[in-house]
């Protein structure tokens, strides 16, 4: 009888323990995938160190990448691919960027925790979430209404209280909250909007990925000098030199 009681109890305990462990093992599985993805990104950064001018991502950026749950930012049917180092379609003709590109874009801004960052083109909200882990204040604007609403709700649900999202025309920036230490322009534009240049603090940085939705050709990093002038740097986010014999 005692034996039976013990056995039954053990079985019940095991079942409960298993049930209790299920969500956490699921979370663990996401986490381990996320860490693997970050490992891959770190290796890519080492490979492209010559182009980025560094062989290691900033610690805050690394922490953010390890923390932000990318699977929450992709459509349910693509969640299993969420931690592959690739862009994914999110509907409305838009994509969630390749994590490697998000990582180096964020890193190239050289952010400080107290910085105020403006993002043009919220998309899924993933880039905003990464920025939100690194700095105190993020402002993000999305022009596609449906997409903007979904992203804003998602960011709120995930607890990003330091991110303010709105739907609107990013060309004019967010004058009420300007100036910004950094601006990320993820939405395509035929030129860099003059109002954004104006809203950038002297010494501030702006980053623009150039290419198609699925393939970023180059990154344009703009710096506003103390005397309100500008300089751009064109960066190839890949270990590639156009001449044979060149050292990557």
């Amino acid at each position: 009888m005692t034996f039976r009681f013990k056995t039954t109890n053990t079985v019940i305990f095991c079942v409960f323990a298993l049930l209790a462990a299920l969500p956490s093992s699921h979370a663990d599985s996401w986490k381990s995938k996320r860490l693997a993805m970050v490992g891959e990104i770190e290796a890519d950064v080492r490979d492209t160190s010559r182009f980025l001018g560094k062989n290691k991502l900033d610690n805050n950026v690394l922490k953010a990448l390890k923390k932000v749950q990318r699977h929450e930012f992709v459509p349910p049917q693509l969640q299993k691919s969420a931690y592959q180092n690739r862009p994914l379609p999110i509907g409305f003709g838009q994509t969630i960027s390749q994590p490697y590109i998000v990582a180096i874009m964020t890193d190239l801004l050289a952010l400080k925790q107290t910085d105020r960052v403006l993002e043009i083109g919220t998309g899924s909200g993933y880039q905003a979430a990464i920025l939100g882990e690194v700095v105190d204040k993020v402002f993000t604007i999305e022009i596609i209404e449906e997409l903007g609403k979904i992203a804003a709700e998602r960011l709120e649900k995930l607890g990003y209280r330091n991110i303010r999202a709105k739907i609107g025309d990013g060309y004019y920036g967010w004058p009420g909250e300007a100036p910004f230490d950094s601006i990320v322009v993820t939405a395509a534009a035929s030129h860099i909007p003059p109002p954004l240049l104006k809203q950038l603090k002297p010494g501030g940085r702006m980053i623009i990925p150039v290419g198609s939705r699925f393939m970023v050709q180059q990154l344009v990093l703009l710096e506003k000098t103390k005397d309100d002038s500008f300089k751009t740097r064109q960066l190839l986010p890949v270990r590639f030199v156009p001449l044979t014999g060149g050292q990557p």
Partner: peptide, 18 residues
């Protein structure tokens, strides 16, 4: 063609746009 080979090997690390 020699470049294609190099680009495809770099596909995971941002090479495909090339």
């Amino acid at each position: 063609w020699s470049t294609v080979k190099e680009i495809v090997t770099l596909r995971g690390s941002g090479g495909l746009p090339l």
